[in-house]
Nucleic acid binder design. Structure first.
Lengths: 240, 240
DNA sequence: CGCGGGTTTGATCCCAGTCAAGTCCCGTGG
DNA sequence: CCACGGGACTTGACTGGGATCAAACCCGCG
């Protein structure tokens, strides 16, 4: 089961690294660049969006707030991701976007979407593709929040982030990958309390280290250890 | 905050009830109809999909299985929903689809997607719209699983389902709306155990009843009671 | 040097998971 | 007609993972 072909989807067209063709197209189509310093929010959940973006560099997070004061990170975003597309399509942003590190974004005008769909069916299809991939990842997140315990959630999140950044070529053998998020962000992403997140991370410290804005995983034992935590062997259910 | 415009999105084009125009279009574009008896699965997570569907009648659920044996419902699906679109776009279904009641589906061939994008930019845009709306709801689910307790999750899910079915005109003043799911399905959708789901439902039984495949909510007090459980007044945080 | 944000750690409590019966209901077959 | 069995729903007792409260600690910074 779970012959998860979709897990290779990140290599799909329009994901980073952008092809020369993509970049040329973006240059023609884009509206400008946006700089977003760490900690700043680009737009809020519910905002009317007239623009959407792809991330050129930096990292951030999409998050929602609940009426009772809780905050939930929906996902982390990395260079090559699109943000605000759903908001542009439907008229209201589905989540806020906050920068975790300084970010550079490539801005597009919502109004040109119609033109894109009318004149560039392939590109339009690529947008739908992106939305579909997004959906796949959100589904995985739902499964994780619903079914896994704290250690499994952390293992899942950390290895996903690590692998994504490694694919982007941001891995450094000695120091790992950039990780500008705080433990509180991880907690809000995984539906855990800050305290429990910290304690659970403490128990994994022998093979994952989080410090100075970097995430380091002892390779290869670290990654396989994460995988084993994430998906423990099926419980041997008594035969009777 | 949370001036959630997107919550009105269900009234978007291509959602039920279908316009005459939509129906005419579907007739030309579709590949046939599929009948899916209750309990049968239409496709599995990871399947290569050459078709996608809109639901004409009946209800079902999309769900994923974890390697450790857990099951997570990703969402419930209703008449007017599209299913399998993401799977068709990316090549692998992101979740399995199982019928909870007998379903009738309108089938489309994946191969004609390219034709659609090339010749019907508006329809293509509508597909992207649907994907965007989907994303919005998955984000809400993530927030619920991450931040709310059992009673709040149930209140959220039940009122969402109730309202959706009411919008579809399937509400009956006396008996409520059709609800072919079992409590175990609710539990798997909300990341709760069956036992705890049952006990929590028991505590709400004065204004929501679940029986004989129907969901009944005492109106209007029931719905407002649900809303209050779902979003309790913000905790008055001590001013110091 | 004091301050504030982020990280650790310990103590306590409770929500929700697990185990274990038991009930209700319906369909099947003797 | 009733015995039987299996599936969904209930209910009680027990347990534990993770929330909450509280207090340090560890910086970099004005």
């Amino acid at each position: 089961m779970h012959a998860c072909d979709a897990c290779r989807l990140r290599r799909a067209p329009l994901f980073t690294p952008f092809s020369a063709d993509d970049l040329a197209f973006m240059r023609r189509f884009r509206d400008g660049e946006a700089l977003l310093p760490a900690g700043r929010v680009l737009f809020h959940e519910g905002d009317r969006l007239d623009t959407f973006y792809t991330i050129l560099s930096g990292q951030g997070a999409r998050h929602k707030s609940l009426p009772n004061g809780g905050r939930q990170l929906v996902n982390f975003v990395f260079p090559g991701d699109m943000v605000g597309l759903a908001g542009s399509v439907t008229g209201a942003a589905t989540a806020s976007l906050t920068a975790a590190s300084d970010m550079v974004l490539c801005r597009f005008r919502r109004g040109r979407l119609a033109e894109l769909f009318a004149t560039q069916p392939e590109r339009a299809f690529a947008l739908t593709w992106i939305a579909a991939v997004e959906e796949h990842f959100l589904g995985e997140t739902i499964a994780t929040l619903g079914q896994r315990n704290a250690a499994q959630r952390l293992a899942w999140a950390l290895s996903k982030v690590y692998n994504r950044l490694a694919e982007l070529g941001l891995e450094d053998a000695a120091t790992g990958v950039p990780f500008p998020y705080r433990q509180a962000d991880l907690a809000d992403a995984l539906g855990l309390s800050l305290v429990h997140t910290n304690k659970t991370l403490g128990r994994m410290r022998s093979f994952v280290q989080l410090s100075a804005g970097r995430l380091r995983v002892l390779n290869p034992p670290g990654l396989t250890a994460l995988a084993m935590i994430e998906d423990p062997a099926p419980q041997r259910r008594p035969l009777l």
